[in-house]
Nucleic acid binder design. Structure first.
Length: 650
DNA sequence: GTTAGGG
DNA sequence: CCCTAAC
């Protein structure tokens, strides 16, 4: 049998070489292999050609081939430099059986019967496959059966196959990689849960593979998988992964198998939805075989235990008796079961995707617009994604992913950093929210009101006024609960001009999701790199906050001001505050003293109300922050006369 | 890490 | 807004 690696039918034929020396540390002693089952790690090209698996591809299936001890050996295959993985029988010459709760014994007759059964199943699969191919279904992958697994390599079948592996040995990987039959007959019930007699336990059936000499072509995993019963799926699972599973979820089994066959996570053989780090089954029985196109799948790293967890909850909840759930007590790597028990699965799901995975997503994104991909893509990145995100149009996710940014800085702290993919918008609120605000009925400019208030409040010491204003004026519904996104632009106190400025870039963004990215322009730097220019116009609210912050903390304490007044403005750094303050100083002192207080602003300059500029100047004077050009004369003329009681703010 | 200043 | 020196 094979572990098919990398079956995504990409035609670019980018699998040039399969360096075949990835023998894991354990694989050193080929001669220990008494009755090896040889696995070729191959990948099937679009035309059905088999190509040796590359290292990367082998790594891809590492999860499926996990084993700790040297039960597995990699030997070089004959002729072709394909990599082979063999499974060695235990030193005693007896195949180890996986058994969770007891010692399993399989008698040969039953084994044979099972083998036949498996053969039938596989034959059925083959037939279905042929039929489907004849119908012109696209062939995505082929399952290649290693023809080397001839019967003579499986004396097991002739001799006694007997399980002697007690449960205690399960952790040893030997058990996790044994090939076993489903215990259809229930003869090995010692290993099964009494109430669920059909758990496969294992009699190792390496001979199964001898039945699989011929290729089994599977076109789309799910197509034929859908028609299989659980047991058949179990068989296929074993055939595919070389180990048994106790998972009773057909969907999961199908997906897993299909994933293996296609080496892709883009397998819609399940109907999963990721919600808040948890996999929730979509309550749809798949008997019809119509895998929901919109269904979500988790990342490829989803573990069996994850699914089991899901199963046990979901199935129990909805009473799908067909899918009896048995906890997978076998531990594949020792940790998973623990995770299962502790429910610490979230971390796994948000595990950062591999580079390869990212590339795959990108390829698929550009090649075929598969909604599931986008969603899974998104899901991978957003462990904390809110439930509603799942129903977000796929386009958003795409645009999100496409907004590749070289900047990897933290975005407000709460974002999961998935470089290149699923980048969280670092940004302004959505246009729609701002649009709503735009219609906020106001007689006079809110900005004017605010600036007036600012001046009013500035005379008393309680100067977190901006925050209060913002909060009081901002309807709660405009807050996005699950995000730490800045809400500044949502504040109605934006003068019309600035509001337009705010909205302009957003309008170009249909999703309103990457508005800030629209402002990113890259400019070549002298050093050869491209630096990103990120323009985000200062809003009046921000300016007011800044002024307020300076009055409270003093100019120069930018980090503190940021912390106090711009905590929610992740995109404003302390340097930004400093820069803006510098500009404000310039602007304020550029004002003609006679024009103070009146709306005689310079043509074309920033629409910052004079009152605010005045305030800036006051603060500057108090701090002796006077732009060089305006040092003495203007300071003397306008400065102290406006308000004399500023010291309280410093 | 923060600030100041130049570009 | 970026970069960097200086602290």
């Amino acid at each position: 049998m094979e572990t098919v690696v990398g079956i995504e039918d990409n035609d670019d034929g980018r699998f040039e070489d399969s360096g075949v020396d990835r023998s894991s540390s354990a694989l050193s002693s080929p001669k220990q292999i008494s009755n090896p089952i040889v696995y070729k790690l191959v990948r099937v090209e679009g035309d059905g050609k088999l190509v040796p698996a590359t290292d990367d591809e082998v790594m891809e299936v590492g999860d499926f081939l996990e084993y700790e001890n040297s039960e597995m050996h990699v030997v070089t295959n004959t002729g072709q430099s394909l990599e082979c993985i063999s499974i060695e029988r235990s030193s005693s010459g007896k195949l180890r059986l996986e058994c969770l709760e007891g010692t399993a014994e399989a008698d040969l007759g039953k084994l044979n019967a099972k083998l036949q059964y498996i053969e039938q199943i596989l034959q059925k699969v083959k037939e279905e496959e042929k039929h489907r191919i004849s119908c012109g279904s696209p062939v995505h992958s082929h399952e290649n059966i290693d023809s080397q697994c001839s019967a003579d390599k499986f004396p097991v079948m002739d001799g006694k196959v007997q399980s002697e592996t007690p449960c205690q040995e399960i952790p040893s990987i030997a058990s996790s990689f044994n090939y076993t039959h489903s215990n259809q007959s229930g003869s090995i019930d010692q290993c099964s849960r009494p109430s669920e007699g059909v758990i496969e336990s294992g009699s190792s059936a390496s001979a199964v593979y001898s039945n699989l000499k011929s290729d089994i072509s599977m076109s789309d995993g799910e197509i034929c998988l859908d028609k299989l019963s659980i047991r058949e799926l179990h068989e296929l699972f074993k055939v595919t992964f070389g180990r048994e599973t106790t998972v009773k979820d057909k969907q999961w089994l199908k997906r897993r198998i299909a994933m293996s066959l296609t080496n892709s996570c883009d397998v819609s053989a399940t109907t999963f939805i990721i919600k808040d780090n948890k996999i929730v089954r979509k309550f749809e029985e798949d008997s019809s075989g119509n895998m929901n196109a919109g269904s979500l799948i988790s990342s490829e790293n989803m573990t069996e235990e994850d699914v089991n967890f899901k199963d046990s909850s979901a199935v129990d909840a909805c009473g799908i008796d067909d899918n009896q759930v048995v906890s997978e007590t076998r531990s594949e790597n020792g940790l998973e079961y623990e995770n299962y028990q502790t429910g610490q699965r979230a971390a796994k799901r948000i595990r950062r995707p591999t580079k390869r995975y990212i590339e795959e997503l990108s390829e698929n994104e550009s090649r075929e617009h598969n909604p599931r991909l986008s969603i899974s893509n998104k899901t991978v990145g957003f462990g904390h994604v809110s439930p509603t995100s799942n129903v977000r149009p796929a386009r958003n996710a795409f645009s999100e992913a496409r907004t590749y940014s070289t900047r990897l800085d933290s975005l407000g702290g709460s974002n999961v950093q998935i470089p290149c993919v699923s980048r969280v918008r670092r940004s302004r609120p959505r246009k729609d929210i701002a649009s709503l605000m735009k219609f906020h009925p106001t007689g006079m400019g809110e900005a004017e009101k605010l600036s007036n208030k600012l001046l009013e409040h500035s005379s008393d010491a309680g100067s977190d006024f901006s925050d209060k204003v913002l909060k009081s004026r901002m309807p709660a519904k405009f807050h996005q609960p699950s995000s730490s996104e800045p809400v500044k632009e949502q504040c109605p106190v934006i003068c019309p001009i600035e509001l337009r400025q705010e909205l302009r870039p957003k309008r170009a963004d249909p999703s309103g999701h990457t508005s800030d990215d629209n402002n990113i322009v890259t400019v070549p730097t002298a050093k050869g790199g491209m630096r990103r220019k990120h323009h985000r116009a200062w809003t009046l609210v921000e300016v007011i906050k800044l002024v307020e912050g300076v009055s409270r903390c003093g100019a120069g304490r930018w980090s503190e001001i940021k912390r106090l007044s711009f905590a929610s403005y992740s995109y404003r750094t302390s340097v930004d505050l400093k820069d803006k303050w510098r500009n404000l100083l310039k602007a304020s002192f550029a004002l003609a003293p006679a024009d103070e207080g009146i709306n005689s602003r310079k043509h074309g300059t920033a629409p910052i109300p004079e009152k605010i500029l005045l305030r800036v100047r006051e603060l500057a004077e108090m701090n002796s922050q006077v732009p060089p050009n305006y040092s003495s004369s203007q300071l003397a003329s306008g400065g102290g006369s406006v308000h004399g009681d500023r010291s309280g703010y410093l």
